[in-house]
Amino acid sequence: MKKLLKGFINYFFLLHELVKRGITLKYRRSYLGIAWSLLEPLLTMIVLTIIFGQLLGHGGKEYPVYVLSGRLLYSFFSQGTTNALKSIRSNAPMIKKVYIPKYLYPLSGVLFNYIIFLISLIVLAAVSIVLGIHPTLYLLQVFVPLIVLFLLTFGLGMILATVGVYFRDMEYLWGVATMLIMYSSAIFYYPEQILSSGNSWILRYNPLFGVIMNFRSAIFGQPMDLFYTFYSLGFSVAALIIGVYLFYKKQDGFILHI
């Protein structure tokens, strides 16, 4: 444990550099740079509000906030996991040259997306205030889904990073899987109808759905759902344990496959 901690301190600067690289390169050569992390979700929100709000009749001033919060959490999840999945292969030239602990690659991939995600929460705050959705004491709950979301993304990211080294197919498969997860996370529709039907398991057992719902209840001033909280937390911790175990067991073989 002490050795682990010492290693972490030693590699903190490296992790910092890798995270910085992720953020810098994401917006390099675009005119607006990091402002895109605010603008892009805002524009998506407007599009989704027009399509689903106006045309399908999800009216109300809450809908833009509802759709934006779902979208933000989902896009971090999908980008973080995808980045972790590709992290070993995309850093192959470095892995072949210098020894550094390999978990830093998926970790930095998830972390830089998390930082961009946290920055983009500013948009959510601004839109909420403009639309008159004011913070309540329940907003303090928001840390729970935010932490669970990080654990979930990093845990799955570690599993995917390991599998991705051995099977390149995973990159395409995961692209389809994230789409499936998106549709079963109630991002742009209200879940009540499905939840009361016989197909409620599609949503209930999707850990990302639980995280998103808890995040929304914090914003709209409602208590968190206990089932969602414990289920998503349990799922994330399990994914993290499996991911870390798998990664550590397989990491010495990575170099032979990239």
């Binding site: 600067f13 490296l14 910092h16 690289r21 390169l25 470095m94 072949k96 040259k97 210098v98 550094i100």
Partner: peptide, 29 residues
């Protein structure tokens, strides 16, 4: 290790940025 010099740079980074990135990989503070 002076192995395959010049491999392992981030090609989209400038030289200056690579000094920091590559240095950190070699364990410099």
């Amino acid at each position: 290790p002076l192995l395959e010099l010049g491999a392992g740079f981030e090609i989209q980074y400038t030289g200056a940025e690579n000094i920091y990135l590559y240095g950190s990989m070699l364990g410099y503070s």
